[in-house]
Amino acid sequence: TLFEALYDYEARTEDDLSFHKGEKFQILNSSEGDWWEVRSLTTGETGYIPSPYLA
């Protein structure tokens, strides 16, 4: 399933992933509550992002 970022986000820890509004992601793991592990389709990087920032 693909999701798109609604807002920009700046990583706060080394496990987080910074991203920009409009960036698209593949969800790798959504079992961690509000923090999902994703792969950016723009950069190929993986990390955790806050799920409320996605649509």
Rank of each mutant, 00 (worst) to 15 (best):
residue 3 F to H: 05
residue 34 D to M: 11
residue 54 L to I: 09
residue 6 L to R: 06
residue 23 E to Y: 02
residue 21 K to Y: 06
residue 48 Y to F: 11
residue 14 E to M: 10
residue 40 S to Y: 03
residue 37 E to N: 05
residue 9 Y to M: 03
residue 50 P to L: 08
residue 29 N to A: 08
residue 23 E to C: 05
residue 23 E to F: 02
residue 7 Y to H: 06
residue 28 L to F: 05
residue 28 L to V: 06
residue 8 D to S: 06
residue 51 S to A: 14
residue 30 S to W: 11
residue 20 H to S: 10
residue 16 D to I: 11
residue 20 H to M: 09
residue 21 K to P: 03
residue 21 K to Q: 06
residue 21 K to E: 03
residue 6 L to Q: 08
residue 46 T to H: 06
residue 30 S to R: 10
residue 8 D to I: 02
residue 37 E to L: 15
residue 24 K to Y: 11
residue 16 D to W: 11
residue 39 R to S: 02
residue 19 F to G: 01
residue 54 L to Y: 07
residue 52 P to V: 15
residue 35 W to S: 05
residue 44 G to W: 03
residue 37 E to V: 10
residue 12 R to P: 09
residue 11 A to G: 12
residue 36 W to N: 00
residue 20 H to P: 06
residue 28 L to C: 06
residue 41 L to V: 08
residue 44 G to P: 00
residue 50 P to N: 14
residue 28 L to S: 01
residue 22 G to I: 01
residue 40 S to D: 04
residue 18 S to C: 07
residue 12 R to S: 10
residue 14 E to D: 11
residue 10 E to P: 03
residue 25 F to D: 01
residue 45 E to K: 13
residue 26 Q to L: 13
residue 5 A to E: 04
residue 2 L to H: 06
residue 27 I to F: 07
residue 1 T to Y: 11
residue 24 K to S: 04
residue 28 L to H: 00
residue 2 L to A: 05
residue 45 E to W: 08
residue 4 E to Q: 08
residue 52 P to R: 15
residue 4 E to F: 08
residue 35 W to A: 03
residue 14 E to G: 12
residue 37 E to A: 06
residue 18 S to Q: 02
residue 49 I to K: 15
residue 15 D to L: 13
residue 28 L to W: 00
residue 46 T to S: 06
residue 11 A to I: 03
residue 47 G to R: 05
residue 29 N to H: 11
residue 23 E to Q: 05
residue 40 S to M: 04
residue 21 K to L: 07
residue 40 S to F: 03
residue 18 S to Y: 04
residue 7 Y to T: 05
residue 30 S to A: 12
residue 50 P to I: 04
residue 38 V to E: 00
residue 1 T to M: 13
residue 42 T to K: 11
residue 11 A to L: 14
residue 46 T to W: 06
residue 44 G to T: 01
residue 23 E to T: 04
residue 37 E to D: 00
residue 11 A to H: 03
residue 39 R to Y: 06
residue 32 E to W: 10
residue 9 Y to S: 02
residue 43 T to D: 02
residue 33 G to L: 08
residue 13 T to A: 10
residue 31 S to D: 09
residue 30 S to N: 11
residue 39 R to I: 08
residue 43 T to N: 04
residue 24 K to D: 01
residue 53 Y to H: 12
residue 19 F to W: 02
residue 4 E to N: 03
residue 47 G to D: 00
residue 39 R to L: 08
residue 12 R to T: 12
residue 9 Y to P: 01
residue 13 T to E: 07
residue 26 Q to E: 14
residue 14 E to F: 12
residue 6 L to E: 14
residue 33 G to T: 11
residue 20 H to C: 13
residue 39 R to V: 07
residue 2 L to D: 04
residue 21 K to M: 06
residue 43 T to K: 01
residue 15 D to I: 12
residue 41 L to M: 10
residue 22 G to H: 03
residue 6 L to Y: 06
residue 38 V to K: 00
residue 15 D to Y: 14
residue 15 D to A: 12
residue 46 T to I: 11
residue 46 T to G: 01
residue 27 I to D: 02
residue 41 L to Q: 04
residue 40 S to E: 01
residue 31 S to C: 12
residue 13 T to N: 12
residue 27 I to S: 01
residue 25 F to H: 00
residue 49 I to W: 02
residue 45 E to G: 05
residue 22 G to M: 15
residue 45 E to Q: 13
residue 6 L to G: 05
residue 12 R to V: 12
residue 16 D to Y: 13
residue 34 D to T: 08
residue 16 D to H: 14
residue 1 T to W: 13
residue 8 D to K: 01
residue 43 T to H: 01
residue 3 F to D: 14
residue 13 T to L: 09
residue 44 G to Q: 04
residue 44 G to M: 05
residue 50 P to W: 15
residue 16 D to S: 13
residue 28 L to N: 01
residue 1 T to Q: 12
residue 49 I to Y: 00
residue 45 E to F: 08
residue 23 E to H: 05
residue 27 I to A: 02
residue 36 W to H: 00
residue 1 T to L: 13
residue 46 T to V: 12
residue 13 T to K: 11
residue 34 D to P: 07
residue 18 S to A: 06
residue 31 S to M: 09
residue 49 I to G: 15
residue 30 S to Q: 11
residue 18 S to L: 04
residue 23 E to L: 01
residue 1 T to N: 11
residue 25 F to S: 00
residue 6 L to H: 05
residue 2 L to F: 13
residue 52 P to D: 15
residue 2 L to V: 13
residue 19 F to Y: 07
residue 22 G to E: 02
residue 2 L to Y: 13
residue 32 E to C: 14
residue 18 S to H: 07
residue 53 Y to S: 13
residue 49 I to R: 01
residue 44 G to H: 04
residue 14 E to A: 12
residue 20 H to E: 06
residue 28 L to Q: 01
residue 24 K to G: 03
residue 38 V to M: 02
residue 54 L to Q: 07
residue 6 L to S: 05
residue 23 E to M: 03
residue 2 L to K: 03
residue 29 N to W: 05
residue 40 S to R: 12
residue 3 F to L: 06
residue 55 A to F: 07
residue 4 E to W: 07
residue 29 N to Q: 06
residue 3 F to P: 01
residue 17 L to R: 15
residue 50 P to K: 07
residue 9 Y to D: 03
residue 7 Y to S: 06
residue 3 F to W: 14
residue 9 Y to F: 06
residue 23 E to R: 00
residue 17 L to I: 10
residue 1 T to S: 10
residue 40 S to I: 14
residue 32 E to N: 13
residue 7 Y to E: 06
residue 25 F to G: 01
residue 49 I to L: 03
residue 15 D to P: 04
residue 4 E to K: 02
residue 20 H to T: 10
residue 34 D to R: 04
residue 37 E to F: 15
residue 29 N to R: 06
residue 21 K to W: 04
residue 32 E to K: 11
residue 24 K to C: 11
residue 3 F to N: 09
residue 25 F to T: 00
residue 52 P to A: 15
residue 9 Y to C: 07
residue 53 Y to P: 08
residue 55 A to M: 10
residue 38 V to D: 00
residue 54 L to N: 09
residue 23 E to D: 14
residue 2 L to R: 04
residue 19 F to V: 08
residue 16 D to T: 13
residue 46 T to R: 08
residue 10 E to W: 08
residue 24 K to P: 03
residue 15 D to G: 14
residue 24 K to Q: 10
residue 34 D to N: 06
residue 11 A to C: 08
residue 15 D to R: 15
residue 38 V to S: 00
residue 17 L to N: 00
residue 35 W to P: 02
residue 15 D to Q: 12
residue 18 S to N: 10
residue 2 L to Q: 06
residue 1 T to K: 11
residue 4 E to M: 08
residue 20 H to R: 13
residue 24 K to H: 07
residue 11 A to E: 00
residue 5 A to N: 02
residue 18 S to I: 08
residue 15 D to C: 15
residue 4 E to V: 13
residue 55 A to W: 06
residue 9 Y to L: 14
residue 32 E to F: 15
residue 41 L to N: 02
residue 34 D to G: 14
residue 48 Y to C: 10
residue 52 P to I: 15
residue 22 G to R: 01
residue 37 E to C: 14
residue 6 L to N: 06
residue 41 L to F: 05
residue 17 L to G: 15
residue 11 A to Q: 08
residue 50 P to M: 10
residue 6 L to K: 12
residue 11 A to K: 07
residue 48 Y to H: 05
residue 47 G to M: 06
residue 32 E to T: 10
residue 7 Y to K: 04
residue 39 R to W: 03
residue 6 L to P: 10
residue 23 E to W: 13
residue 12 R to C: 13
residue 11 A to V: 14
residue 31 S to T: 09
residue 51 S to P: 11
residue 9 Y to Q: 02
residue 22 G to F: 08
residue 31 S to V: 07
residue 27 I to N: 00
residue 47 G to I: 05
residue 37 E to M: 13
residue 47 G to Y: 06
residue 41 L to S: 02
residue 49 I to S: 00
residue 22 G to V: 01
residue 54 L to A: 08
residue 20 H to Q: 10
residue 11 A to N: 04
residue 19 F to N: 00
residue 44 G to K: 01
residue 37 E to S: 04
residue 38 V to T: 00
residue 21 K to F: 13
residue 40 S to A: 07
residue 53 Y to G: 10
residue 44 G to S: 15
residue 34 D to A: 08
residue 21 K to S: 05
residue 20 H to W: 05
residue 16 D to L: 11
residue 18 S to F: 06
residue 51 S to C: 11
residue 49 I to N: 00
residue 5 A to S: 04
residue 48 Y to I: 08
residue 25 F to I: 03
residue 25 F to E: 00
residue 7 Y to D: 07
residue 36 W to A: 01
residue 36 W to Q: 00
residue 3 F to E: 02
residue 48 Y to P: 00
residue 34 D to Y: 15
residue 14 E to V: 11
residue 31 S to W: 09
residue 27 I to R: 04
residue 3 F to T: 03
residue 20 H to L: 10
residue 33 G to M: 08
residue 37 E to P: 01
residue 26 Q to S: 05
residue 22 G to W: 04
residue 28 L to A: 01
residue 1 T to H: 11
residue 50 P to R: 09
residue 8 D to W: 04
residue 45 E to S: 07
residue 5 A to K: 02
residue 36 W to I: 07
residue 40 S to K: 10
residue 8 D to V: 03
